[in-house]
Design a protein around this nucleic acid. Structure first.
Lengths: 338, 338
DNA sequence: CTCACCTTATGGAACGGTCCACACCATGAG
DNA sequence: CTCATGGTGTGGACCGTTCCATAAGGTGAG
């Protein structure tokens, strides 16, 4: 029992397969009664077009591949939402693949996607450098969403304005009255940008001397350890701006384990506005990087590049916004400051 | 500039397209020097087989579709990991799709998957009832993973043993000395099973009278509200077993807002062992439902059903394990018990 | 009446693979 | 010398669509 084909439908409706094809693709060159007959036959047989045959013939798949780095860190969910809705409007499907999952298996997802002949590629977040992605991007329209690297010709970048976001977070803390502010830094270009935003604002407020940067990473553990180091050193900060929410949560744990009350004794800001930060038990002040918007614009960008593959590369930055929640407050005025 | 086809490779290597096909599919009926010539041509041209053409001809896609309900609740990540690794061993790819995302767009993913002619379907977690899934399951080998419904002919179920897991959680609490134990219940068959496990153990320990069940849902908000109700009523429990980690985190917030210290004044157990529960700031005692194993077995089950579509339905239950962390402790012995 | 033309329908050639049936060429047995 | 044998290689049908070139039939103008 093989699934019915367009020929089965044609036979049942008493027309040629070409006419069935016309009807299914919405041509207006068909007499209404024939159209009805075809649609009825489709219904009766439960016909579904074969995507492989269609894309073989049309020489496109109406599908874009989405490369994800790690599903465990949920910051990208909103982004995917925006991405999907815009793509859907243009009749494109989204194929998700978690790179970490497959890389462990020694499989390169870009290979899979090129074999599938996806019409486009979206790299979500910073991916480990891969020559295969480079090659793929040379052949398939590609957009990086929510990250700033790699920068390659014929490839666009859509991301939140990390430097601006970091500035917002830092200004928020300074605005509350904090002077000794620390930053738990992340890696890569994004880490660099957020650090730069932090340092710039501190400098502008004449606080360059009391600005502390502690290297962390993108994990809870990294945030925890960085916070332990920060609080163990002399001149401990009264406020900390963490690279992202996960690191922020780690930092939160460290602070509380060392007997500090947040936000009374220490203010803390994260980044990404993940649902983690929205949990009322954490209620983390954070920076919303407008991921939904980033996703939508990345989709738009990809659509544009699909229609004009050779146009110059573009970098779109979306403006983030501060999301003040429960982990930031003015510092307690202690007399022991120098 | 179209991507090279098997004919281009053949021409370059000076052989027929059939021979190229043989080489690429690893036949041993080919003379080594010809094989080398073909492989060299493949390399030089950067040839990648066209998946659409291949699956059209082979009449299978080597791809299974994975239906996900909601990426925001991360319990399934481990499951996907197990699923992916087992499928990969059999040369199958995984196509992920978030149902919630697409349902909002009025698109039915099962349609997409049937058009793609995926070789199999995995429904992860409890999905909203859909006649389309029913139809799809009738035509495509389908396995439900990490849920207990829907039950349809020619469809297998692989899940954690929820009743047993609930028993573990409840016994853990009773073993610590708790007598007034409450359960924040979930919905659906899984919710039912966990509640049943809870009630059975309470009964077995002669605690049926002090067993409280409060209806929640699968969200943080639901857990929060259920906990508020529990703590507001008379005979407040000293321990609570929540349907899942997310609800547990909500419950945790409620308890702390009402001035209770966890675990001193109240013990709390979640379910799923998500990374949420592993955050040191929450450090939630929970039940590990061996998702990785569930994933692997679901994959195995699907492979079996693909080879024998008509064999009787099977239900595989994987044994969960308690993960004791920081939110459970013996109750403080207060004199005011009746 | 003839012819151009428009609308509607059709056959058949792609699309890029797989795989079957068959051809070719040594080789060695009868 | 002939003929089965077996290892290698090839042509071509087929998978299920799309779409182009063209046919059939009706209509109105000249």
């Amino acid at each position: 029992m093989r699934p019915p084909t367009i020929r089965d439908v044609a036979e049942r409706a008493g027309v040629s397969k070409s006419l069935v094809s016309l009807v299914l693709r919405g041509s207006d060159q068909v007499r209404p009664e024939k159209r009805q007959a075809v649609l009825a036959a489709v219904e009766e047989l439960g016909y579904r077009p074969n995507a492989a045959a269609r894309s073989l013939s049309e020489r496109r798949t109406r599908t874009v591949g989405v490369l994800l780095n790690d599903m465990r860190n949920p910051w990208f969910v909103e982004l995917l939402d925006g991405l999907g809705s815009r793509l859907h409007d243009s009749g494109l499907h989204m194929l998700l693949a978690d790179g970490r999952l497959n890389r462990r298996l020694g499989e390169d997802l870009t290979h899979t996607f090129t074999e599938l002949r996806v019409d486009g590629l979206i790299a979500v977040g910073t991916l480990p450098p891969s020559p295969a992605l480079r090659t793929a991007a040379g052949q398939i329209p590609t957009v990086v969403a929510g990250a700033r690297e790699p920068v390659l010709p014929r490839m666009d970048i859509v991301a939140g304005d990390d430097e601006h976001g970091a500035r917002l977070a830092t200004e928020h803390l300074i605005g509350l009255g904090h002077q000794r502010v620390a930053h738990i830094a992340g890696q890569g270009v994004v880490g660099e940008l957020r650090r730069r935003g932090f340092e710039a604002v501190m400098r502008e407020h004449g606080l360059a001397d009391t600005a502390i940067v502690e290297q962390g990473d993108l994990t809870e553990e990294g945030g925890y350890r960085a916070m332990v180091r920060l609080l163990g050193a002399a001149g401990r900060p009264t406020a900390v701006f963490a690279f992202n929410d996960i690191a922020g949560v780690g930092a939160l744990s460290a602070a509380e384990e060392l007997g500090l009350q947040v936000p009374r004794d220490l203010s803390l800001v994260g980044y990404d506005n993940t649902y983690l930060s929205r949990l009322r038990h954490l209620w983390l002040t954070t920076v919303d990087n407008a991921s939904h918007d980033v996703g939508r614009r990345a989709a738009q960008c990809l659509l544009d590049r699909i229609t004009a593959p050779d146009r110059p590369s573009e970098t779109v930055l979306v403006t983030p916004a501060l999301k003040a929640r429960g982990t930031t407050a003015p510092p307690v005025t202690s007399g022991r400051r120098p």
